[in-house]
Design a protein around this nucleic acid. Structure first.
Length: 580
RNA sequence: GCGCCCGUAGCUCAGUCGGAUAGAGCACCAGAUUCCUAAUCUGGGGGCCACAGGUUCAAAUCCUGUCGGGCGCACCA
């Protein structure tokens, strides 16, 4: 697969070579550390195409002042054919303007790379396991799960584009008390399906209608065998059937969003395979698990609290506030005990782990990070581990909060929302805010067809380009790179925006923030709309002009802009629209 | 009481491993349509980057503290 360095990366290399040359010449001490030296586009475009802070960062080490050092660097940069001008600015920045030919070549590069433009080999050789969604298998997905699902899925795609090998994983919590509750709820629906009047669903069981078909299927398969049998006889059967049915529901819901996991890891299987026990032994051997008694929780009073000796993981050794029990007094594994083993299992097959969690789990981040740190230390192998907390989404309809009550089973399901506004709108909207900030999701606003709505703004840019291509094709004009030299300053300004894409992908992957792609696409769309609009005042600035050669070159240019939009949307999992 | 996240224009939010005069949209004001999609665009006003210290060539960004909002603090999941 073709990979190409960004223009910025290419210049970072050139600068590096220049600094080495300066060391050879004695203008810099040998092997001067270059941490902190950056080559970036300046915020203010009037400062040029690229800017470096090298002179300011290194001046002290060179025993000179930034401006003198900058002059020496500029002297060498000026010899580069790709550099049109290099000048000192402000406290010692070096601002570069690149030759127009460099930007013309970039348009051709986008065309040559096509769907691969923006891909990078940055993460080559790194296997990343990203666990997201992991909703409990007790019902269909609701909007509370949606943001984490989209954020995780987009991050997975982003990391792939940046060259990582990615495992998309879902942890199925099929071993706790709530799947027993699910089984009991299913049993009730099973009796109902066999004609029994079950009345109101008792408190503590799941009241949702979605369990009716599960009960009906169980009735059909099992007959009346378990109607009055003791619970211990039917519970395992109903549990496994109900969980399986719920996971089918969840997979359907995820498919509506275009999400498909590689691995569904079962907590029950993990426990049956003895993984938590093995983890406990491993930790005990390192004195990281001991039998101890926890203090009573502070800040709130618990009537039924009493001290008990439990096997505790020394998470305080790795920054947690208190040690955490891995087993309960009844001998069963705590959620954490199993989760700890689960992370060890994931780490067997990956260099880096990422968990996407809801913000309501923020309290458990430290202990699981402690567990992975212990594993990393014990194995003498660096395991990168990130927990991304996704904040709540407040649903609004015309500005009014949508009421939800989980207890009554009256929640807004993901399927309903996707049906109402569409997959692409849901996905893009979820990525128009950084995940750790709360967001509002207003049904009216997200489908609004105006520039307030980033989804449409970006889609519209792409549709406009395709509309233009169609129209030109009808006149017998096709995009062509033949006359790319005809592209002028205004055309190349658009190229510069499009050429940021590979760099944005790398930076977003490094920061593990997929939302940057969404914001970038908005900026690119804005640049395109502005470019387009210039044609309203001046016919010579239109894409389709009287000059067929120029038209072909501009069609080539805008079709590459469309290519970049398409590539960016692909990371977000949004389908590009060619006609609106 | 403790932990985590957040605090940037009237509103909703960006802000690149610390960089130049802090940006965008909405709203507000003034304009643009013989037009390739006006589902749009151009220009303008609007800021103590919550507050107070600190770190350094340079702080919205890093550190400490205070205030405000959210989430969480069981052997639950």
């Amino acid at each position: 697969m073709p990979r190409r360095n960004t223009i910025h990366a290419a210049f970072a290399e050139k600068l590096d070579a220049i600094l080495s040359a300066l060391e050879m010449e004695g203008n810099l001490p040998p092997e001067t550390p270059r941490a902190g030296v950056t080559v970036e586009p300046p915020r203010d475009a009037s400062h040029g195409d690229l800017s470096t802070n090298a002179a300011m960062v290194l001046a002290k080490k060179a025993r000179t002042n930034p401006r003198d050092l900058a002059a020496k660097i500029i002297e060498k940069l000026d010899r580069d054919a790709d550099v049109e001008s290099a000048e000192i600015a402000g406290p010692g920045f070096i601002n570069l303007r690149l030759a127009e030919s460099t930007w013309r070549e970039e348009v051709a590069a986008i065309a040559a790379l096509g769907d691969d433009y923006g891909r990078s080999d940055m993460g080559a050789g790194t296997r990343v396991n990203i666990e997201y969604v992991s909703a409990n298998p007790t019902g269909p997905m609701h909007m509370g799960h949606c943001r984490g699902a989209v954020v995780g899925d987009a991050l997975a795609a982003l990391l792939e584009h940046a060259g990582h090998e990615v495992i998309r994983e879902y942890y199925v919590n099929d071993a706790g008390a709530q799947v027993d509750t699910l089984a009991r709820s299913a049993h009730l629906r099973y009796r109902e399906a066999l004609g029994e009047d079950i009345g109101a669903i008792p408190e503590g069981l799941y009241p949702g209608e979605y369990l009716r078909p599960v009960g009906a299927a169980l009735a059909e398969e099992l007959g009346e065998k378990y109607v009055s049998a003791p619970e211990e006889e039917w519970l395992p059967v109903f549990r496994s059937q109900a969980v399986s049915a719920m996971m089918d529901l969840i997979r359907q819901d995820l498919a509506l969003l275009g999400i498909h996991h590689d691995v569904f890891a079962s907590e029950a299987e993990l426990q049956n395979a003895g993984k938590p026990y093995a983890a406990e032994q491993w930790l005990r051997a390192r004195d990281l698990v001991f039998d101890g008694v926890l203090e009573a929780p502070k800040g709130k009073t618990l009537d039924d609290w009493e001290p008990v000796e439990l096997p505790l993981f020394r998470s305080t050794k790795f920054g947690d506030d208190q040690d955490r029990p891995i087993r309960k007094s009844d001998g069963k594994w705590t959620y954490f005990g199993a989760d700890l083993a689960y992370h060890m299992q994931k780490a067997e097959d990956a260099d880096a782990l990422i968990d996407i969690w809801g913000a309501d789990h923020s309290g458990t981040v430290k202990r699981i990070k402690a567990a992975v740190a212990a594993l990393s230390e014990g194995e003498g192998r660096a395991i990168t581990f990130d927990v991304k907390l996704v904040q709540m989404v407040n649903l609004l309809r015309d500005g009014e909060p949508v009421k939800m009550s989980k207890r009554s089973g009256n929640f807004v399901t993901l399927a309903e929302v996707v049906e109402e506004v569409g997959k692409d709108v849901v996905r893009f909207t979820m990525l128009t805010r950084k995940p750790e900030a709360q967001m509002e999701f207003d049904f009216a606003k997200v489908i609004e067809q105006s520039k307030d709505n980033p989804v449409f703004y970006v889609q519209y840019a792409n549709a406009r380009i395709h509309s233009t291509l169609r129209r030109a094709a009808a006149d017998g004009i096709a995009p062509s790179h033949e006359n790319i030299d005809l592209l002028g300053t205004a055309d190349l300004a658009l190229v510069k925006q499009a050429a940021q894409f590979p760099r944005i992908v790398e930076a977003a992957a490094q920061a593990r923030e997929a939302h940057r792609i969404a914001f970038y696409l908005y900026d690119l769309a804005a640049a395109f709309h502005a470019y387009w609009n210039a044609g309203n005042d001046d016919a010579a600035k239109r894409v389709i002009t009287a000059d067929r050669d120029l038209t072909a070159a501009r069609l080539f240019l805008v079709s590459q802009v469309a290519q970049v939009i398409r590539n960016g949307l692909a990371i977000l999992g949004v389908e590009p629209v060619e006609e609106m």
